[in-house]
Amino acid sequence: MANTMDSPRTAVSNPPVQPMETNLTQRDLIRRSATSELPPPERQLTPVAKLIDVSKCIGCKACQSACVEWNDTNPEVGENVGVYTNPHDLTADMFTLMRFSEWINPETDNLEWLIRKDGCMHCADPGCLKACPSPGAIVQYSNGIVDFIHDNCIGCGYCVKGCPFNIPRISKADHRAYKCTLCSDRVAVGQGPACAKACPTQAIVFGTKEDMKKHAEGRIADLKSRGYANAGLYDPPGVGGTHVMYVLHHNDKPHIYADLPDNPAISAVVQTWKGATKYAGLAVMGLAAAGTLLHGLFGRANRVSKHEEEEAKELVDESVEHVEKREEDA
């Protein structure tokens, strides 16, 4: 089984009991931050995805607990400010967060309690990776997982600016970036993500991206049959699709789910900074350096002549005489 199956197909089954080699290796990288000549991967792993069905979520936060448990993080004990969202934001110790929104549907005048599990979307075109200046601090595997390699992270926070979903957080303790790993360390050995495994309602499911899309279709048909005409799959094309997808009952307005971006894409400012500026800037500086060097070596220097030194001496002598004469007169 283990050798025929490159990626786990589900989070539900129990883990394989036989020891397994990790199957997410350097050979499986399709992108590596600040690395231009990455050798192409030797094989293509089956793309995986996590599907979060917002309509099935009961807000129990079992996923949040499972994530803390599996990743062995220690989120600070927070303060209750009257909402269920807890902690108040993603942190370097909390890779996923249930965000609760109260929304009044203008068509029905019903209060809808929207609960969205926030966290890294594992973009096919990841802005975090594009912005990262440190070679190998962010990698993307051929199965779609975008992972932070903390040993290579310098803590600059560029990934925070690059991400269209406001996901990465820099730890104040070790100054490295943290976010959901899509449980790459579990997936690498044939297990589904901890959050998906813990979810009691199967609102979070995991498998190949194809299977997840198919599964979503069924869910969307069901929602539509129950009056949610705009139900749909959130797999935003602006970032090339994502490996964490949502089933939304109101897919026409993702922003009602705690500001989920309607059309996420890597910001044009980031594209300019990491595109034209980076290359043109280096070229201009290189040319200027070469130009001054050449002119310095072969050009004619601007030298002071003997004659000019004499002129200066004359001027000074004259002034001294002048001063002395004035003093005698006085």
């Binding site: 002071v304 002549s305 003997k306 000019e308 200066a312 001496k313 001027l315 000074v316 004259e318 002034s319």
Partner: peptide, 17 residues
């Protein structure tokens, strides 16, 4: 040098003198 000041910044030199 005085010549440097004479060549490049003569007004400055003359002013000091």
């Amino acid at each position: 040098t005085g010549g440097w000041a004479w060549r490049h910044h003569r007004k400055w030199l003359k002013d000091m003198a």
